[in-house]
Design a protein around this nucleic acid. Structure first.
Lengths: 182, 182
DNA sequence: GCTAAAACGGAGAGTGTCTCCGTATTGTTG
DNA sequence: CAACAATACGGAGACACTCTCCGTTTTAGC
């Protein structure tokens, strides 16, 4: 990659991070280009779609999300607590930029999406948590990690969409009660 | 309301119902106007925002949703079954037009939204089901109807967003397990 | 330095939202 | 059944956003 290309790539990404945080992932891409000091053509050459741009930013979290999952497992807390912690961390990450959660919901079951791979990294992290608890017999039989991921992403999406600052905890408690054996 | 106004209002609504069903609630409003044979100005005078138009269409279901809730209660089925039936019916209705579910999620906690009133009708229907089962002691203590509504709307939204035809049943089972006493 | 390859950027085409206001339609009143 | 408000229509057009094309500039290797 040529030096000027790399420079612009980085500038665009840094600007997108700011703008997406300020105004959500549906902000104008031309404006991001302008604020980054590049032409629209340059932005679209590096990131052909909005999803590709969101995907590039996701790199930051996917690693952290995966780490959070493993950290949750390492705590050895009871199933209920471990799941609640993990889910809350997960939701905190994917709602960092307004509008991202629902894009992730959509990409999760769409292998054609640029974001699909990173969704899989997060899905796999979740699977590790679920499998760990499942192996200990702490979960109801038949719990499917993929479905849990969809459900929790749905909670994130609801919280993200909602005008009012919504507490996800009560919803997560219902989900957790639906998962753990009791 | 003048006769010609009423005529156009009805034409726009009928057209919107078709277009929203074909291509979802994010279709072009100008195109709906064109297909209805009216100018854009006329559409926007009757329905100042897209939400107002969706809201007007919702009238059709809110009644049916409320009826479904009462029908579910009347069956007298065990809690698990009653809830699953009710949730599935509810989701079927609000995913009739692609994109509607997430708009409903957003409106549910936003009294300023034109759709808020109709969301309340559906929320109240849900509350009746939950309260009915709660009174019989079939639910876990502390179950909050509003949260359940958000959760189930979230499931609807996930199913609606997903490219692939997603089966909501497994997700609903988790939710139901999280609600019923066992 | 020179040259080919790579990348830039911005004008502009295409699409959608929404408004303004001159024109047309309706219903009421004498 | 005029005639006149009042009401409603509709489409031109301003504005915003997405995305592309291509003439110009920058880079890297020789």
């Amino acid at each position: 990659m040529r030096a000027d290309a790399r420079r612009n790539y980085d500038k665009i990404l840094a600007t997108a991070r700011i703008v997406f945080t300020e105004r959500g992932t549906d902000s104008s891409l031309d404006e991001i280009a302008k604020r980054a000091g590049v032409g629209p053509g340059t932005l679209y050459r590096h990131f052909p779609t909005r999803e590709a741009l969101v995907d590039a930013l996701m790199q930051d979290w996917t690693d952290r999300v995966a780490a959070d999952a493993d950290a949750a497992i390492a705590t050895g807390l009871p199933a209920r607590q471990m799941l609640l912690d993990w889910f809350e961390h997960f939701i905190d990450h994917i709602t960092l930029h307004r509008g991202a959660a629902s894009k992730i919901c959509a990409a999760m079951d769409d292998p054609a999406s640029p974001m699909y791979r990173k969704c899989r990294v997060m899905s796999d992290a979740n699977r590790r948590v679920i499998d760990h608890l499942g192996a200990d017999g702490e979960l109801r039989p038949g719990v499917d990690a993929a479905n849990i991921m969809r459900l929790v992403s749905g909670v994130a999406s609801v919280a993200d969409t909602s005008r009012t600052e919504l507490d996800v905890r009560p919803m997560l408690e219902v989900v957790v009660d639906g998962i753990v054996r009791d």
